[in-house]
Design a protein around this nucleic acid. Structure first.
Lengths: 78, 78, 78, 78
DNA sequence: GTGGTCTAGACCACG
DNA sequence: GTGGTCTAGACCACT
């Protein structure tokens, strides 16, 4: 995993999602962009997106459901 | 997505059918529940039920007949 | 949905691979096109490609290795 | 196939679809209700719905695409 | 009214 | 960056 500007790439993605939740752009229950879309948006590998989203899932910020998508947790922390 | 005991959903369904055969609840020639009923019972999609039942058919545990149903094989293995 | 020659889409894909092996375009050990490429080439969904390739794997024509790719079997039948 | 009030059940369904197109409720390219929904709506068997929709498809009123749905034909006749 | 094929995606496990 | 599992449907073939 490489850093850019002193932070890990996956931290940039985590930060972005949390910011959107903080601003109310993403609300509890909302569908978050898919892995494939994030790969495009952030110009990173699927593994980097996965690392970011799994960290957010571990923190309880999002819930990932196979075959359905990634959703903002019902009581998302930020 | 929650996996039970680290196995796939279709494996849970396969196991359930095999267990019923092992216990004698399902006997050779018996009609097995329809895909639609299993979708309800196991709370999975139709394709997951299909994966499970097709695997059992490949193993020779059941026989599937289009338009009729799924039956326990005449000499079902367990 | 249009079927060509009254056969299923996955059968067209199976036939294509077998033909390439028969012609010597694909030889034992060769890497076969990825699922994503076949989705583009045959204009079908990923699941249809999977059905085709899994059937070829069952027949022993190809070997599929998660994380690596699909290869023509060492002693491919045609 | 049974009649009700002197007309075949599938004729009632065909009539309904054509009427909706005539009124502009359904326009070229629109997705028509699924087979399963029509079974509920008209309280008929799947075979009856199928007969109706296939007749409409033969007439060029609708286009049926496996895995996607039934659509009002680009230049639907009525 | 069953099982079969197919869509257009999603996330997961692995290398 | 592959193949694997899974969703929530659709229409198709058959009995």
């Amino acid at each position: 995993m490489k850093k850019k500007n002193g932070i890990f790439k996956y931290e940039r993605i985590e930060r972005d999602i949390k910011d959107r939740i903080g601003k109310g752009e993403l609300r509890p229950g909302d569908l978050v962009k898919s892995e494939a879309e994030m790969v495009q948006q952030f110009q990173v590998s699927k593994m980097t997106v996965k690392t970011a989203m799994n960290r957010l899932a571990d923190e309880g910020v999002v819930v990932r459901i196979q075959g359905k998508g990634t959703f903002v947790a019902p009581c998302a922390k930020r």
